[in-house]
């Protein structure tokens, strides 16, 4: 049964792609000999990291719901930690940050218990109202407004938005072929594919800058190439992994590719504002969790609600 599930088929396909990527990297390294270019080193690191990320993802998906939800909870935690470590905070904010961290296990408990209503309102309503109160209890007004804006935005990005990936595991797909985990896979693969496609198209054909003040390496050619490639991939993958029809899959491809781009540039704007290159060094070759999940922050909730609108 496990072997026949579409998740396993897609897993095999990912395995083949990774093997191919590793072989190509190996050949490039062989050609360059001892004096490896920095690009080759980075490519090598990236592919290695992709192996680890895919092993973790598929491992947890096969282990089941609890393991998968725990994985996404941990990812949310690492993302929030990166965010709080990057943005300016004060000594008095520490207690508020601590409470903000506590929202993670609770939010993922609502996911685990499939409490849809609470999952939707917990962070935008309850956490939103509680954190400023905790800051008031510190009796220090200095920097209050700025701190609350920063902290709540961070919780929304890293906990609320990313937890939508995990809630996909709880939806009823009304079919035997697809399941919650196949929806997760569809979201993650299309979003990450879009990142890579936009990068490669930009590197190959990029001429006209799309948003130079925020992200100088992004081009119209990269963006449009990514949209085309991702929409094609989604139209093939979605009917296999989800109940989406062909035309619905095309729209999904457009949502993923365009909104993935938006997520990417939003998180780049934060980095540019703070004058940093990466959020952390957690994933060799990629940077931090937030560098890898920037587009997911946008695509996860939008994918979820597109699905919920059509099928829930």
């Amino acid at each position: 049964m496990l072997i026949e599930s579409p998740v396993a088929y897609v897993g095999l396909a990912v395995l083949l792609v990774l093997i191919l990527a590793s072989v190509v990297t190996f050949i490039i390294k062989k050609q360059q000999g001892h004096s490896l270019s920095t690009q080759a080193v980075e490519l090598d690191q990236r592919i290695r990291s992709w192996w680890w990320m895919m092993i973790l993802l598929f491992g947890c998906l096969f282990l089941g719901k609890l393991a998968s939800i725990t994985l996404f909870m941990f990812i949310s935690y690492l993302a929030l930690k990166e965010f709080f470590s990057t943005v300016p905070t004060q000594h008095v904010d520490r207690s508020v940050l601590f409470w903000a961290y506590l929202s993670i296990p609770l939010q993922y408990y609502w996911v685990y218990s499939a409490w849809y209503g609470m999952f939707l309102v917990f962070i935008p309503v309850y956490v939103f109202l509680l954190l400023p109160f905790r800051r008031v209890l510190t009796q220090k007004a200095e920097g209050f407004t700025q701190a609350m804006g920063i902290i709540h935005w961070g919780v929304m990005l890293s906990v609320f938005c990313l937890s939508h990936i995990a809630f996909l595991l709880q939806v009823d797909t009304h079919s035997t072929a697809s399941s919650g985990s196949s929806l997760v896979l569809l979201l993650l693969l299309t979003t990450q594919f879009n990142d890579i496609a936009q990068y490669i198209c930009g590197k190959s054909f990029g001429k006209h800058k799309i948003i130079p003040q925020i992200s100088p390496n992004k081009t119209w050619e990269g963006f449009i190439g990514g949209v085309i490639c991702t929409t094609i991939l989604t139209s093939q993958l979605a009917p296999l992994l989800s109940p989406f029809s062909f035309s619905q899959s095309l729209i999904l491809g457009l949502i993923i590719s365009s909104m993935g781009f938006v997520g990417d540039v939003v998180m780049s704007a934060v980095k540019r504002d703070l004058g940093i290159k990466d959020y952390s060094q957690l994933i060799p070759g990629h940077g931090g969790i937030l560098d890898r999940c920037d587009s997911l922050i946008y695509t996860a909730p939008l994918f979820f609600h597109y699905y919920a609108y059509l099928y829930y």
Binding site: Y77, F84, S85, T89, H91, R94, L97, F98, Y101, S280
Partner: peptide, 19 residues
């Protein structure tokens, strides 16, 4: 850099920060 934010002098509560 960062440990003074995670566990500064005189505080008992450890708040996670990257260092």
């Amino acid at each position: 850099y960062g440990l003074g934010k995670a566990l500064p002098r005189g505080e008992a509560l450890l708040v996670p920060f990257n260092v």
